[in-house]
Design a protein around this nucleic acid. Structure first.
Lengths: 206, 206, 206, 206
DNA sequence: ACGTAAACGAGACGGTACGTCTAGTCTTCAG
DNA sequence: CTGAAGACTAGACGTACCGTCTCGTTTACGT
């Protein structure tokens, strides 16, 4: 479950109560004091745990934070499939609007910024993130696009990875760098532009 | 020139030599030791400057770093206009390939990650960044798109901000979160997808 | 007037208003914040004077403080002669009781401790102190003892310096090191012991 | 052993090696650079110790210095009793001559000045000093005087505290304020004056 | 049921950097 | 050229955490 890769201590005897308390404390604290002021010392104190218990099982502050996100996503039963009503544009707009909601929720905003920052600066952590969280979520998105391909809404030779980037990239980028207000309306315009393209189309649309 | 917003000390007497030495040291150090280990103390020592001279003029480590970028961009005469050969797709591909090069250059990679994560965590800094660096660069991009509108390559009612996000967002997002290899080829596929859109087009274009 | 010894700046143009403001501020501040927290910076601010004006005319914090005492003593017309009623014991007791009063007055206690500390650590300052303040006061004391010699109350071959030390030394020592309560009663017992000596006397006493 | 009075950290786990290194370094440094330039930072560096280890166990620089003296006096087995040959005057002169030697030894001069000035400015430290160092030494002095009382050399109703002040006060005061050369001869004259008193005696004694 | 070995809470340790404060020097400007 | 103002280099202050290292104390196996 841990992000550590080397030879572990005797994991069999690991205290699950402490582990959960640490992850809970880490997630809560990052929301309260911000990422810059998050400290191992603070996490240990909040969790009622010795510092060594953290250093024993995680290699870095980012790894703790990452596991905290992992626990959260697992506790909530993992991510469900994207909605599939047969109307791709509507489904994407709905999903992105929900994402915008979440990104604007201060309860998630700060912790997610923290996680992204850690990923940006720690290649090892980034690799784990890709495998454990990003890839599964990306697969769900590609599943919806594949369904659209089967329905003839998208070409069968579409590069799905580029497609996912085109739809979600602008949103995440604007959020991360605060490049303007993040509204549901903006999300909708991005979806339309991504599906239709920037250039004028010969045929009728939608 | 500084990022500080409140009442400044007597800026007329400010030592320009110290200011430049600090920004130079900050930029060099962030490339050498990485952002996590960049310290005010280290910058002051490298610049041959008292710590107070930094605290007097900048409110945070991120602000120093930001001004360092600003100085660099101003010293190099600001950014030039994007190429305009009349072929939008080719021009965009060329620009994005160059951007990919830069993002893959370790000389710029680490400092730019540092700047971006600081922006992500500091709304005040983000505001300044938008005005001083992001907006001017975005205008250059929009200028090229406007030129394409005049040439009939893009619809005249196109939302240029969304267009810029669509083209550059995926690239920056993949770079920041290390969501896969960042190649010129990827850049090209993003440009094509953005221009043509994901959905099948009625007639062949360009 | 200054304690500085080297080549002075053009003393003719010296601003007497600034000089007095500085000495006044130094004396007041040492009583308010204590000696440890007394700073040149603080004195300059309180006096409404640039720091350089202090550094120009005094070599050290102690020198400023010393001049402050000097000014005070000169402004109050210098020390008057000790009382001489013809009864040495009574006169000494009266003087020492007054000294005890002064030493117990918080208005003088802290500044005098500060001055003594500076003297203890700065031989150069100590020399000046001896000449300008200690010696004059000691002469007044010796004058009173000489008068007693003439009156036959003290032997004519008495070492007056040792005598002064014997009478005032215990008091100052107890005050400085807080070696017990400093009362008028204690002062009286010291005078009696000093005059009569510790050993039993053959003849009748006083 | 520490001068701190409030609730201590877990003293059981205290590192004695660090404690001794700190006290040693403090004593050595105060002799080398003087009290004014003695810094916690310097002590920590010299002792090979983190600053926090000093702040954890001592409330102030003065307290460290004080404990350094305490350690020294305890390591050298504490002070022995004063000599008692039956001749009080000779014994006192011998002791005071030795004290003069010590006060003139630069190895002890500066540290003792530092300790004394700290005591002068810190009532809390003064209290501890009185109990732990001054009182024991004073008792040894009073013991010798009591012996003299039993031998009939001193009156049985003599105020021993005043007597001790009368003998040692002048010496310490002259030393602290550099009120003249501190010689064995001076010490002898003080002893004689203190024992015989300043006034002329009826009969010859001793 | 009992030893034993590990993980645990606690927290002292040598360090680094923080952001503030003061020292003493240097520069600019008004009079 | 003076004195006021204040920016400058330098470095100590006391605090917060870092990551490592004991301490005793649970806790859960393997006997």
């Amino acid at each position: 479950m841990s992000t550590g890769s080397g030879t572990s201590p005797n994991a069999a005897r690991r205290s699950d109560a402490s582990r959960r308390a640490i992850l809970r404390a880490a997630f809560d604290l990052v929301g309260e004091v911000g990422y810059a002021k998050l400290s191992i010392e603070g996490i240990a104190a909040r969790a009622g745990v010795g510092k060594q218990t953290i250093y024993r099982w995680w290699p870095s502050k980012g790894a703790v934070l990452f596991d905290a996100f992992l626990m959260l996503s697992e506790d909530s039963g993992g991510s469900p499939a994207l909605p599939d009503t047969g109307d791709l544009r509507a489904d994407l707009v709905a999903v992105l609007r929900a994402t915008v909601e979440e990104l604007n929720d201060p309860r998630y905003d700060e912790p997610m910024r923290a996680l992204n920052t850690e990923i940006a600066h720690d290649p090892e952590l980034a690799r784990t993130y890709l495998q454990r969280l990003e890839r599964p979520m990306r697969e769900l998105k590609k599943d919806r696009l594949r369904s659209a391909q089967r329905a003839g809404e998208l070409p069968s030779d579409l590069d799905l990875d580029v497609a996912v980037d085109l739809i979600w990239g602008p949103l995440l980028n604007r959020w991360m760098l605060r490049g303007g207000e993040l509204t549901g309306d903006y999300a909708e315009r991005v979806v339309v532009a991504a599906l239709d393209g920037l250039r004028p189309r010969g045929g009728a649309v939608g």
